[in-house]
């Protein structure tokens, strides 16, 4: 028996998908090709039923791994967006207070469960934590612009992740359906064979 993994990748790509808008991959995720006819597909790929099922199963596993990775990244981003919104909120509050003559009195957490009081007088600037142990002072307007941009970027990449996941799930569905069809075809063939004898 030949090794299905080595053999099948190029063959799968070459197999039938005439009528379909075939995208070969999306951001590193290989597309699953749709099989028009099971018998032709098996003949073309030179595989028997169990090899083909094993290959599809393996593909499915690979897709699942990518899906988990994407979901984790998506969750990270989804958590980041409210954080940025919170920052924007406080910057806006500081800006609104400015010029009103009164200070912003705020209770802040010093350590877990311990709060102290801060009086923030008219302020022109805030410091933004940029990560990698760097904090930079920005004027309120600049800080707002930067946070706004970060928010937009985060939302845009979230959209990309959502689209990636959709693409991936389509490939999973195609692979599952193909698997079921190969299996059904096999059952059908053996029934036909049984009838003949």
């Amino acid at each position: 028996m030949q090794n299905p993994n080595l053999l099948l990748l190029p063959l799968m790509a070459a197999s039938t998908c005439s009528s379909s808008p075939c995208v070969a991959e999306r951001r590193g995720i290989p597309a699953a090709s749709f099989v028009e006819d099971v018998e032709t597909y098996l003949k073309q790929s030179g595989l028997d039923v169990s090899c083909s099922l094993a290959f599809l199963q393996e593909r499915l596993q690979q897709y699942k791994i990518v899906e988990m990775k994407l979901l984790a990244q998506q969750r990270d981003l989804q958590a980041k967006i409210p954080d940025i919104e919170k920052c924007l909120d406080i910057v806006a509050t500081l800006q609104a207070k400015k010029g009103s003559g009164e200070a912003l009195i705020a209770d802040f957490e010093v350590s877990e469960g311990i709060y102290s009081q801060a009086i923030i007088e008219d302020t022109e600037s805030v410091c933004l934590w940029l990560g990698a142990n760097v904090m930079l002072e920005y004027s309120c307007d600049e800080a707002k612009a930067l946070l706004q941009k970060n928010l937009e970027n985060a939302k845009a990449s979230l959209e990309v992740f959502v689209a990636d996941l959709q693409f991936l799930r389509d490939q999973v569905t195609i692979t599952q359906v193909t698997g079921a069809r190969v299996y059904n075809w096999d059952v059908h063939q053996s029934r036909l064979a049984a009838k003949e004898t």
């Binding site: 009528s19 799930r169 389509d170 569905t173 195609i174 359906v177 059904n184 059952v187």
Partner: peptide, 21 residues
Amino acid sequence: GEGSETQVTWEDQQNINKFGR
């Protein structure tokens, strides 16, 4: 007769994908 041999077209597949989504 077996019910398992209905041809699946690309259009069907797309509908199934859409349903999954």
